[in-house]
Structures are given as structure tokens and as C-alpha cells.
Design a protein around this nucleic acid. Structure first.
Length: 273
DNA sequence: CCGGTCACCTGAGTGC
DNA sequence: TGCACTCAGGTGACCG
């Protein structure tokens, strides 16, 4: 479910609610979600304090006081929830991390696509080298974006969805950014004039920043750590608006399948390549 | 290198 | 009500 703004919101929530706390107990109910063994996960976390929270693309990284790292990818429906320990085991919760002060962090995931792993310091550095993550859109200059696009062929939408090319965008923010820049999702990347690439960069950055400010988009089940959704879905201009009037020109929004994903665009504001 | 399709899962919505 | 079908914020494997 979550893209860059949603993951960033969750990471900020983790930073304020979970860092500084010490893990007392780890319970894994669905071991297949843990890539490198649930026993190792419990071993590396139990007794350690969580020292910081970061985002790498759509990955969440929690650093621990024993120099280990806990990495989570939420995929489509993963959620973290924080609150006092309860007796009941809530539906779709696959992992519970209890802290020594009576609070707990739950991992809930309806579709069970999410993945997590616990790594030692050495393994984490290896992971960083091997995980093919492109630059973060919020940390990349317009000029770098221009240079990077120039080296690639293929159509713009699948390229923006490719995490090795640029990390953090997903289906919603790709459609919204392309709409704002007036670029058709099937445009060959190498055919875009530099001015249009710079415009896309500018729109993309502002879009992501505004979405973060509103704690992301909730279209079905994304929520922050306190179970509250985001507000940016109210600002969507094309995503999920098939058949509605384009907010800029009034023409009906159309839907296509691109890279296997539902793709929303305005045929007038985003002319065919 | 690039694109298309399927697989991984559960649930919501639609139309008959 | 029930059933069949499509769709969903992600990504990795496999194939041409």
C-alpha cells in the first residue's frame, strides 16, 4: 500500500513513539514474513533498545542498541500500530514487539505480502550495497534526474516505478506527478525534452512534500502508528478518478493498463507520444 | 535491456 | 443471498 509519503510518515511516527524503548519480547505468528528466520529476529531484537528510525526508498530501517538493524517492507497492506499491550491477538497481526514499559508495536498485514529481516551491522552494510535502490527523489537534484533519465530507454511510467531507477514512487504518486507535468505515461523517457524533465522533477518533489505534510494518502487501509489515515487522497487529481472531469481542462480522465498497473491520466493535458 | 504476465494473499465492490 | 469476476498503494520470477 504505502509509497514514499506513507512510509516517511510511518518512520516519523516510529521515531517519536518507539525510539528509546527497550524490547522485552518478540512474538512471530507468521514466520514466512521474516526473510532470514524468525528465531534470529527475536534473538537480535530482544533486550535491545531501538535507537533510530530511517527510510530507504520504501524500506523502513530501525537501528538497535546492539548494532543490529530491523528492516521492514510493507508491500501492499503492511501496517505498524503502537499502543499498550493487550491480551487479545488482533486480526491480521503477524508480529508483536512488546517493550519493557507496557507498550507494544504490532505488525499487521492483511495480504501478507510484507517482508522483514533482522541483520547484524556487517550484514546490514552488505544489504545496503546489494539492494539495488536508486536515489531518493527528495535527495536528487533536477540535473541529476535529467542525467539519469538520459541513460535509460523505455517508457516513463514503468521507469518511475522501477525502484532501482528512483526509489520511493508508487502507482499513485507516479500518476499524479505525470499529470502535473503534462506527460503521457507511455512517453519514451529519452524523447522528453530537458525542460519537461525539469518540470517533472519540480512537480514530483512538491507533490511528495505536500503528501508528507498531510501524512500520506489513505485510499483503502493505510494508517499511521496511531491507526489514523492520511489526508492527501483529497488532493488527488487523477488517481482513481476515471470518468471524472480533469481538474485542469474538464475532459474526462481515462484509465489504461501500463506495466500491469491501473494508470490514470487526462488525454488532453497529457498528449500521446 | 525492456515489457508482459503471473504469483504471492485477502477483501471490497459490482453485476447477474 | 450467493456466486463469479475485477480490482487494489508492491515487487520478484519467468518468458519472449
Amino acid at each position: 500500500m504505502p509509497e514514499l509519503p506513507e512510509v516517511e510518515t510511518i518512520v516519523r511516527d516510529l521515531r517519536s513513539l518507539v525510539t528509546g524503548r527497550r524490547v522485552k519480547k518478540v512474538q512471530v505468528k507468521l514466520p514466512k514474513l521474516v526473510n532470514n528466520g524468525s528465531g534470529r529476529l527475536a534473538r537480535l531484537l530482544t533486550g535491545s533498545r531501538i535507537t533510530s528510525a530511517h527510510r530507504r526508498g520504501k524500506f523502513i530501517v530501525l537501528a538497535l542498541s546492539n548494532q543490529a538493524f530491523f528492516i521492514v517492507h510493507l508491500k501492499m497492506t503492511g501496517q505498524f500500530l503502537f499502543g499498550p499491550v493487550t491480551a487479545a491477538w488482533p486480526e491480521h497481526v503477524h508480529l508483536r514487539i512488546a517493550f519493557d514499559d507496557g507498550q507494544e508495536l504490532l505488525y499487521r498485514d492483511i495480504r501478507q505480502f510484507g517482508r522483514m529481516l533482522a541483520l547484524t551491522y556487517r550484514q546490514y552494510n552488505k544489504w545496503l550495497e546489494e539492494e539495488p535502490l536508486g536515489p531518493d527523489p527528495l535527495k536528487m537534484s533536477a540535473s541529476d534526474f535529467v542525467l539519469r533519465l538520459r541513460t535509460r530507454r523505455g517508457r516513463i511510467k514503468p521507469l518511475l516505478l522501477n525502484q532501482a531507477f528512483i526509489s520511493g514512487l508508487g502507482n499513485i504518486y507516479t500518476d499524479e506527478a505525470l499529470f502535473q507535468a503534462g506527460i503521457h505515461p507511455l512517453c519514451p523517457a529519452e524523447s522528453l525534452p530537458e525542460g519537461q524533465v525539469r518540470l517533472l522533477h519540480e512537480k514530483m518533489v512538491r507533490l511528495l512534500e505536500e503528501a508528507i505534510a498531510l501524512r500520506g494518502s489513505t485510499t483503502s487501509n493505510y494508517v499511521g502508528l496511531k491507526g489514523v489515515g492520511g489526508q492527501f487522497q483529497n488532493k488527488h487529481q487523477v488517481y482513481g478518478k476515471t470518468g471524472q472531469d480533469c481538474p485542469r481542462c474538464g475532459h474526462p480522465i481515462k484509465r489504461l493498463k501500463v506495466a500491469g498497473r491501473g494508470t490514470h491520466f487526462c488525454p488532453r493535458c497529457q498528449p500521446e507520444p
